[in-house]
């Protein structure tokens, strides 16, 4: 009897809620931690990056205008979908990252729990970051938080799932939309994650994921005039410097890569959310 030949998945980009190949027609070989062939992933181009920004901008009005409660529900739904795909992700993590099965399970649990944690922040971050200001005069004066806009995210090269979830969730929970440059070496979990996102009631375009060369794609996003912020967590020092210089052109908010190695299992804190929040202060006279 012949052994059944498995049906492999084609790994594509995730733009505007759809799964296109790179318009450039390019792909690159992705191998396991042990060097075995895993897949030909799409190698995104400048045009793909720009299409992704257009999709993210298009989605911004609706997503930032949705109630915080609704955004929290959607992100909780992502956690539910991720939980239900445990087996698939565990296998992918073992292959991509070379971690043991037990470690893969731990990272997966942490990724699900992180989404749940961030989901709860949607309607609370404004309470801890806003303020009613006691001005010296007859004025109502209130400061509240608003999302920055379209944020480019250079995902960490390691921690292909937990690291990725930990950089995406804080950006979108407050109402931003994003374009993510996935880990170049281990991009496959990011595409599988986009399958989760696509089935989580997350509006198309809120998260867009590009695979390929981060050195090639990240600078296009850093210099893009319709991108409002950039998270350089996954960028090596030289790339981070180049991107920060390009980001100055329209004064993007820049989250620099951390000086020390990140422990993705640690308490995230609020800094990743507040890096891409604006404060709006509204004044109105009080009187009859």
């Amino acid at each position: 009897m012949t052994e059944r030949l498995s049906v492999r998945k084609t790994y594509k980009l995730f733009i505007g809620g759809a799964f296109p190949r790179s318009e450039s027609g390019r792909s690159y070989v992705v191998t396991s931690a042990k060097g075995e062939f895993l897949a030909n992933a799409s190698k995104a181009s400048r045009k793909d990056a720009r299409d992704a920004v257009v999709a993210a901008r298009k989605a911004f009005g609706g997503w930032s205008g949705a109630t915080a409660y609704n955004r929290g529900q959607v992100i909780y739904r992502i956690a539910e979908m991720l939980e239900s795909r445990r087996a698939q992700f565990a296998a992918e993590l073992v292959a991509a990252d070379g971690v043991a099965a037990k470690k893969a399970a731990e990272l997966l649990d942490a990724a699900v729990d992180r989404l749940v944690w961030y989901a709860g922040w949607s309607d609370k971050i404004g309470a801890i970051r806003g303020s009613a200001n006691p001005v010296a005069g007859p004025y109502f004066n209130l400061s509240s938080t608003e999302p920055t806009g379209v944020v480019a995210v250079v995902a960490p090269p390691t921690g292909p799932l937990l690291g990725l979830v930990s950089v995406i969730a804080p950006v979108i929970v407050t109402g931003n939309t994003c374009v993510v440059v996935a880990s170049e070496r281990a991009p496959l979990p990011s595409i599988t994650l986009s399958e989760v996102l696509a089935t989580s009631d997350l509006p198309g375009g809120v998260v867009n994921i590009l695979t390929g060369g981060s050195e090639e794609i990240a600078p296009w996003l850093a210099g893009h005039m319709d991108v409002n912020g950039i998270d350089l967590t996954g960028a090596a020092p030289d790339l981070a410097k180049t991107c920060e210089e390009l980001a100055a052109e329209n004064l993007k908010r820049v989250l620099r890569p951390p000086a020390d190695k990140i422990d993705w299992l640690a308490d995230p804190g609020t800094a990743r959310m507040t890096a891409f929040l604006e404060t709006k202060t509204v004044w109105h006279p009080i009187g009859v």
């Binding site: 200001n133 001005v135 005069g137 004025y139 004066n141 400061s143 404060t279 202060t281 004044w283 109105h284």
Partner: peptide, 10 residues
Amino acid sequence: TFNRFDPTSP
């Protein structure tokens, strides 16, 4: 109103 400033107001 316009051009109001106060040290307590961001």
